[in-house]
Design a protein around this nucleic acid. Structure first.
Lengths: 202, 202
DNA sequence: TGGGAATTTGGTAGTGACTACCATATGGCT
DNA sequence: AGCCATATGGTAGTCACTACCAAATTCCCA
């Protein structure tokens, strides 16, 4: 790896770190990109070459975690769907748990700022569709409509567990661990502890 | 109701309709709020008094549908959770089905434009939390942590069904009806047609 | 090692969403 | 008619973000 890429990574990190610093000091809305650029000692146009939007500064880590999990799942060997879902869920949580303070900071910012929350939800939604695409490959192809439907619902369930667990986890003074919570959620679902909506005639 | 409120509603509708017209003609990104204001024959500052953001113009109807459903559910008599979830799901779909073309237009715009998609996801997420708040009231209070957890997961499942059904529905040349799809989804979930993630030791 | 090619950078100028504010106009009521 | 509350339009400004260009930096190979 050349000097170029090293420098690139360094400035990238520097910008993101300075951004988090300023956001937590002054709030997202009261921090301008010019201030961030100045703090990282780069020009604003350089900042925009690294991050597409102001919100992107905040969400890069989450994005990386989710992208990694999809990638990882993509190259996992075949396994049946329940195990697959569990594996993806745990993979995402492992990735997120690599950096608990950052995750907490991200969710704090999302709670305070509408546009961050919106972008975060957008990210989550993209993960859901990516995961659904991955799941559909592991389902029978005889009835594609049905398989797509099942994949979408399954991806939604996985995402639901992840999101719920993470939100509880970030609100909890860090004694709980995310994977244990996730297992509790899975158990609640599979034993009827969480009631599923009743179909009227089935 | 006085003349004032009538006029208010009329201009509100006028603005939103003109906005949709321009969006579908020229695209969301290539339409400015000034153009919309001009088309509706109001000043830009008036437009912003009616709608908080450009995206709000697009999403008002969805927002109303979801808010109505939460409201409606709030004043429903007690019922057990599976029935409650089914009822909310069907209520939302009924509301959305009142105006299929608009829903289709909204999802088309969301697909093309990131910021619209983000705001839509934000809306959906708010509905999810509102619904969870409502559900927790109907759960036992002896273990509040557990009840909140169950409520969050349940709301997520309901939202998941709604979202999946609507996305299939808007992509389908309108022969299918949404509630039938939703019932299919419920049946798939309650009969194991959709595999739940397997808890490792339960 | 020197020099041209490719890439990265900072700066400028501009667009457009959105806000704060004020003067004017309009409907509601006595 | 005339007063009060509210609705409106306009102005001026901030800030995120884009397109573009000229200068600096890194890379690579003769």
């Amino acid at each position: 790896m050349g000097l170029r890429e090293v420098k690139r990574e360094r400035t990238r990190r520097l910008i993101a770190d300075k951004a988090f610093e300023l956001f937590s000091d002054n709030g997202f809305g009261r921090t301008t990109v010019e201030q961030i650029a100045a703090a990282a000692e780069v020009g604003p146009s350089t900042l925009y070459r690294y991050f597409p939007t102001k919100e992107g500064l905040v969400l890069e880590f989450v994005d990386d975690c989710l992208a990694d999990a999809v990638d990882w799942f993509h190259q996992q060997p075949a396994m049946d769907l329940p195990d697959g879902l569990r594996a993806v869920i745990e993979r995402v949580l492992e990735q997120l748990e690599r950096n608990p303070e950052r995750i907490r900071a991200v969710f704090d910012l999302a709670e305070q700022t509408g546009s961050v929350s919106a972008h975060l939800n957008e990210l989550i939604w993209r993960f859901r569709t990516d995961l659904a695409d991955e799941l559909v490959r592991r389902l029978p192809t005889d009835d594609p409509r049905r398989s797509e439907f099942v994949a979408a619902l399954s991806a939604g369930i996985a995402m639901n567990i992840i999101e719920t667990v993470v939100r509880v986890w970030v609100d909890t003074p860090d004694t709980v661990e995310a994977k244990a919570l996730a297992r509790r959620a899975m158990r609640l679902l599979s034993t009827g502890g969480v009631p599923l909506p009743g179909a009227p005639d089935a």
